[in-house]
Amino acid sequence: MKIAILGWGSLIWQPKDLAFNKEFGWKPDGPILPIEFARISNDGRLTLVITEKGTEITTLYALSNYHDLHEAIFNLAVREGSGKKSIGYYDKNNNAFFSTNLNIKSNIEKWIEQTDFDAVIWTDLPEKLESKDPLEYLKSLTGNKSALAEEYIRRTPIQIKTALRTKIEKELNWKLIE
């Protein structure tokens, strides 16, 4: 089984123990998904997630070193520090789809049909903003939390140009680190 791993944030520039084919690398023409900075992580960073309020973005993808879907899901869950229920997947051969974001299924199916992948997996964490204005939240951060939040946004791949990223670049001058 050939498995793709979707990415749009720190997975790209900080894969840690993610088992993916380094020679294949990260390709810039993954499925189009609604992505936005809409989750406050445990360390205070404002991170990217799939959300109905997101900007339609062409994601990136890599080739998993695993050929078993459950092993690939487990590997991504360990990298993300989450449970397996926080990993979305689509198995083309069995038409099995799992995600909290049901509105993305057709985009995933359309993309995978144009590839030779048998399955695709992605981080499927929900929004978590606690009714905060994301820009005001970023402005309120200090010290290490501010540095981590800035690094995350500035190291996010250039093609992940969300509506909020445009505002952050303009108002906070947190531009891409090249």
Rank of each mutant, 00 (worst) to 15 (best):
E130L: 06
T156P: 13
S146G: 05
E136C: 06
L125W: 05
L148A: 13
D124R: 08
L141P: 10
E130Q: 07
T156M: 11
L129I: 12
P126W: 13
Y152V: 12
K132S: 07
L138M: 06
D124I: 13
S131W: 10
T156K: 04
L135S: 08
T123Y: 13
D133I: 00
S140L: 06
P157D: 10
L148K: 14
E151I: 07
T156D: 15
Y137Q: 01
L141N: 08
L135C: 08
D133P: 05
L125E: 05
T142A: 04
I153L: 00
E151W: 08
K145P: 04
L148S: 11
L125P: 02
E130P: 01
E150K: 00
K139M: 09
R155P: 00
P157V: 06
K145Y: 09
D124C: 10
L129F: 15
L135V: 12
P134C: 04
D124P: 13
A149C: 13
E127R: 12
L141C: 06
E150G: 00
R155A: 02
S140E: 15
Y152E: 09
E130F: 00
G143D: 05
E151V: 05
P134Q: 03
P126V: 14
L129W: 15
L141M: 05
G143A: 04
K132Q: 09
K128W: 15
A149E: 10
S131F: 13
A149S: 14
E150I: 00
E130C: 02
E151K: 08
G143Q: 05
G143K: 03
E136W: 08
P134S: 04
P134I: 00
R155C: 03
K132C: 05
N144D: 10
S131P: 01
K132Y: 08
A149Y: 07
Y137S: 01
S131Y: 13
L135F: 11
R155V: 03
Y152S: 06
K145R: 14
S146V: 01
L148R: 15
I153Y: 03
L148N: 12
D124S: 12
T142Q: 15
T142Y: 04
P126F: 11
S146E: 11
E136L: 12
L135N: 07
R154P: 01
D133L: 01
Y137M: 01
K139P: 09
T156C: 13
Y152L: 11
L125I: 09
R154G: 02
K128N: 15
L138V: 06
G143W: 02
D133C: 02
L138D: 06
R155Y: 10
K128H: 15
E150Q: 04
G143E: 02
A147T: 02
T123Q: 12
I153R: 00
K145D: 11
T123N: 15
